[in-house]
Write a protein that binds this DNA or RNA. Sequence first.
RNA 1: CGAGUCCGCCAGACGGCCGCGGUUGCCCAAGGCAAUCGAGGAAAGUCCGGACUCCACAGGACAGGGAGCUGGGUAACGCCCAGGCGGGGCGACCCGACGGAAAGUGCCACAGAGAUCAGACCGCCGAUGGCCCUCUCGGGGGCACAGGCAAGGGUGAAACGGUGGUGUAAGAGACCACCAGCAUCCCGGGAAACCGGGGUGGCUGGUAAACCCCUCCCGGAGCAAGGUCAAGCAGAGGCGUCGGUGGUCCGCCGGUCAAGCUUCGGGUGGACCGCACCGAGGUCUGGCGGCAACGCAGACCCCAGAUGGAUGGCCGUCGCCCGUCAUAGGCGGGUACAGAAUCCGGCUUACCGGCGGGCUCGCCGC
Length: 135
Amino acid sequence: MTTAPNTAVPASVGSSFPDSTGRPDRVRRLSGASEFNEVLRNGRRLRRGGVTVVAHRRHGGLPRIGLVAGRRVGGAVVRNRARRRLRAALREVTLAEATDYVVIATPVVATAPFEELCGWVRDAISSTLPRASAR
RNA sequence: CGAGUCCGCCAGACGGCCGCGGUUGCCCAAGGCAAUCGAGGAAAGUCCGGACUCCACAGGACAGGGAGCUGGGUAACGCCCAGGCGGGGCGACCCGACGGAAAGUGCCACAGAGAUCAGACCGCCGAUGGCCCUCUCGGGGGCACAGGCAAGGGUGAAACGGUGGUGUAAGAGACCACCAGCAUCCCGGGAAACCGGGGUGGCUGGUAAACCCCUCCCGGAGCAAGGUCAAGCAGAGGCGUCGGUGGUCCGCCGGUCAAGCUUCGGGUGGACCGCACCGAGGUCUGGCGGCAACGCAGACCCCAGAUGGAUGGCCGUCGCCCGUCAUAGGCGGGUACAGAAUCCGGCUUACCGGCGGGCUCGCCGC
């Protein structure tokens, strides 16, 4: 658990972060029930490991994310932790422009090794990319 | 040293990389940069008490709810402190819904004869009355039918106060002495609860987290309170002595053809203020007053403010605890409970562990 990420994490950060697309990857937050419902109703839903990603393409603008950690994830402390780890993991991946994402947590998100969590998020996000762009 | 008890405190530390929210300043703006601040002792449960907001409010009666030894503290409390009383502990100390049972009503399982104007199973007596025997005609003896008694036995958590005497046929607070309890009066101490002492009196079960009585307190709803702006829609029916006085009634007030209430239907469900606060504010001063809770004075400080919800993610080193190999040390695992949402004061509950101090008991040494 401690030895493997030592080499893997910095590599993934360095490769995907500053210059994979050349633009500063800024992200907005989703806000309000209407925006969330829009994504959840019309978006493409993918589950990888302990996370579910719902992606929905918009007309333009920066990517937006919304995090969901429901009551079944745990108490307030565990839900906060799950949300923060998801936010940290999302910074490790490239998000498509003009797309809204809702990421839904399960209980394992709070306890799973961080590298594994990053893997789930990366797989799920990249799987949405061709569909979202093909639409 | 061991065991215990009370009080207070902490809630791993440091570093690296990458981030988030608020505020202030700067840049012409989108946005960016800099500085600065950014979870808890319980932020929790939402159980009490307030602040604040809106609605209501002449007054009275009755409901209803809450509190309940005394005094103090406090904005207030069901909280805190001190004291009293009762109970527990060798002790430090701990625990207590702790007003009234002599205002009334009710209840007291099982057992038991009887469980509150009590009762008589075994028992005791049988003076008096009755019956029988005897007779020296005064009486004497017997039976246990009437009747009397509640001492002893037995039942029970509890049996009409306890012990000893007098008394009597046998007995009983019937009477006496002492004692326990209660009521009442007086004296002394205390601010009071209460404590100590004395007199008098009647003659005494428990239960009020049973009804109840007494004293005191309580208008309702809550920040989704409440307000501003924006956007948007479609009205129709009912009540007409109706509405308000937010439990009810009396009474009062308002409206009386236009408003109000209400039912169904339609629209919106966004932004901002409230709301991040100069406050029942925090820290310090071995300050002053007080046994203490706390109050007062002075100095300094401004100390989270999100809204699908910031306060973090990952890594390293060192602590601490456990297991293991066991020589410094190595390896593996663990490092609680838990996350602000209008804000305060409490209570309760959860919690790996650690630190400091006071006191008590036991053992040992000087």
